[in-house]
Design a protein around this nucleic acid. Structure first.
Length: 567
RNA sequence: UGGGGCGUCGUCAAGUGGCAAGACACAGGACUUUGGCUCCUGCAUCGGAGGUUCGAAUCCUCCCGCCCCAGCCA
């Protein structure tokens, strides 16, 4: 990999790397660069997290630094071990390694408690008896200052005693909090004596029932960063308002000063990124699960056939900045095609079969033709394809009454069967009742073996095909965008993102015919189905029951032309 | 009405006072045993208005627009 993750080196620096290089030249941390990726284990990772992962691990790699994986598990009521496992799997799959630096905020609960005590001792925190509603009332509003809690001036001794009793479980859930003593009139609401510790009796996935008080994010996060010696703590824009508090805690505690830097989170066209909304899609069964190939989750993208390389390349190409934006999914798909074009074996797959009988080809004869596996990678070699009298071609490759510029098969037309022969359509067999074309009668030119005519004549079209008796049956799932509008999160009045779900996001094709070499494919194998697109063997696929997911289609200028004509 | 941010091509995004990178998309064209790939070509005066300057996307002023914040969530 290059300087960043995969992208081209020598480009201009983004604002975060600019800060890092400034710190490096000023000697702020003796050139040390240490980042972290801090997910809360309450859901599956999505492509937005991938941006953050690539940023944090990528920066560490680029500057010879380190990046920790740290689970931000300070709220046991919503966090689960299942998510911890999936997150680790996803980060690894993306190609990053936290080595021995796997941490949990819960590792620091003991230290964090001591920090709480320390805050009380310097007169910067107090135990407050206000209820949640009262705290809200006392907080004031966006435009009006808040009121100080009547418990704000308790003595240090009393606070110490009460905090210890909170920890010991002497008070009910929610009956008391530890609050930082800052400024109830601050324009920044985060600074209005924020809650630092709350009482919450729920079993933590790692510490069990050892604690009944848990630190709030703002307190736990900056302290965890500090404890780990994180130099640059990169997070998303909505935490910008929290930075003064982040700095305040570290200053009061007089511990290592990590620096929080905020960037704009990723938005992608035709999908959604919020964990809450993704969860809703799963729970309401609009998708089959977190790893549905329609989902923008890492596990969904993986199952769909996206490669870690393409995701990393995407992260590089979109850059990092502070402005809200919505990136075109085309950018992701472009990188994917670029990656797969170089690596995916080409394969014959007829999705909507139309039988072709080659009348002048001997019955009961078969031969093998040689086919290159990947023209972009000669080292991939060749394979043998069986050819015989009866084959299948793509239904859409034939038209009885073709429009101008249709280069494929039509009555009387000659086309090339890729790697095999030229064939000419002699007649059409139709279903007597429906009039539907059910079979083509063709002849082949035995002189055109390999797809080249010795007399030098040219054909405009080249079709993919599969020998009828040798082909394997397969199920193919064609995926489209999950939503029908670019930005479903930005719904018009009276609607929400659910109103924009694409009812045709998945089209399942059965009875597809694929070349016999696919018999042994295993989940996550990538292929290019010639002239169709890139496909990936689904995790439910077995040798007897092949299932492929369309990762992304090939660019299709013919389809584009048709579409333009119809508009 | 308070606080914090952001506004450069259709979409991302460089640029930090000297003649507006790049990518995707789009449009033409070449090549082609994938209507794929590849290769050429084209494609913005920088939210607005004033001002400073020989010169401004870059500095100043005012205005406009968008995003975030009132969880004992993260």
């Amino acid at each position: 990999m290059n300087e960043k993750n995969t992208g081209s080196p020598g480009e201009s620096l983004d604002f975060i790397r600019t800060i890092i290089e400034e710190d490096n030249t000023s000697g702020k941390h003796d050139g040390r660069v240490h980042t972290r990726f801090p997910p809360e284990p309450n859901g599956y990772l999505h492509i937005g997290h991938a941006k953050s992962i690539c940023l944090n691990f990528g920066i560490a790699r680029q500057y010879n630094g380190l990046c920790n994986l740290r689970f931000d598990d300070t709220n046991p009521s919503r966090e689960e071990i299942e998510y911890v496992d999936s997150i680790m799997e996803d980060v690894r799959w993306l190609g990053f390694d936290w080595e021995e630096r796997l941490f949990y905020a819960s590792d620091y609960f003991g230290q964090l408690y001591e920090y709480g005590v320390q805050l009380i001792k310097v007169g910067k925190a107090f135990v407050c008896d206000l209820s949640a509603e009262e705290i809200r009332e006392y907080r004031g509003t966006l435009t009006e200052p808040g009121k100080e809690s009547p418990f704000r001036d308790r003595s240090i001794e009393e606070n110490l005693d009460l905090f210890e009793k909170m920890k010991a479980g002497e008070f009910e859930d929610g009956s008391k909090t530890l609050r930082a003593k800052i400024d109830m009139s601050s324009g920044n609401i985060n600074m209005r004596d924020p809650v630092t510790y709350r009482i919450q009796r729920s079993t933590h996935h790692r510490t069990g029932d050892k604690w009944c008080i848990y630190p709030m994010y703002d307190f736990a996060h900056c302290c965890s960063d500090s404890l780990e010696g994180i130099t640059h703590s990169i997070c998303t824009l909505e935490f910008e308002d929290h930075r003064p508090l982040y700095d305040w805690y570290l200053e009061q505690l007089d511990i290592f000063r990590s620096r929080q830097i905020e960037f704009a989170r990723l938005n992608l066209t035709y999908t959604i990124m919020s964990k809450r909304k993704l969860l809703q899609l799963v729970e309401e069964k609009h998708v089959t699960g977190w790893d549905d190939p329609l989902m923008p989750t890492i596990s969904g993208l993986r199952r769909r056939g996206y490669t870690p390389e393409s995701i990393r390349a995407f992260a590089d190409i979109i850059g990092v900045a502070k402005r809200d934006s919505i990136v075109s999914i085309d950018l992701l798909n472009h990188g994917l095609r670029e990656d797969l074009n170089k690596r995916a074996p080409r394969v014959m797959a007829v999705l909507r079969p139309l039988k072709v009988v080659i009348e002048n080809y001997p019955e009961n004869q078969a031969e093998e033709v040689e086919a290159i596996i990947n023209p972009e990678d000669p080292s991939a070699g060749t394979r043998k394809l069986p050819f015989s009298r009866e084959i299948y071609i793509e239904n859409t490759d034939f038209m009885e009454d073709p429009p101008r510029k249709f280069f494929r098969l039509a009555p009387g037309r000659e086309v090339r069967l890729k790697h095999a022969y030229f064939i000419t359509c002699k007649s059409v067999v139709k279903d007597e009742k429906t009039g539907e074309v059910i079979e083509l009668r063709c002849t082949y030119d035995p002189e055109t073996g390999g797809g080249e005519a010795p007399d030098g004549r040219k054909v405009k079209g080249t079709l993919h095909w599969v020998s009828a008796s040798h082909a394997l049956d397969a199920t193919v799932r064609l995926y489209e965008h999950l939503f029908i509008v670019e930005n479903p999160a930005d719904a018009e009045e009276g609607k929400d993102f659910m109103d924009y779900i694409n009812p045709d996001a998945l089209e399942t094709l059965t009875g597809c015919k694929v070349e016999p070499g696919l018999a042994k494919t295993i989940p996550l194998d990538h292929f290019q189905f010639l002239r169709h697109g890139y496909f990936c063997t689904d995790s439910d696929s077995t040798e007897g029951s092949l299932i492929f997911n369309r990762t992304v289609g090939l660019r299709d200028s013919w389809a584009k032309m048709q579409k333009k004509k119809n508009n």
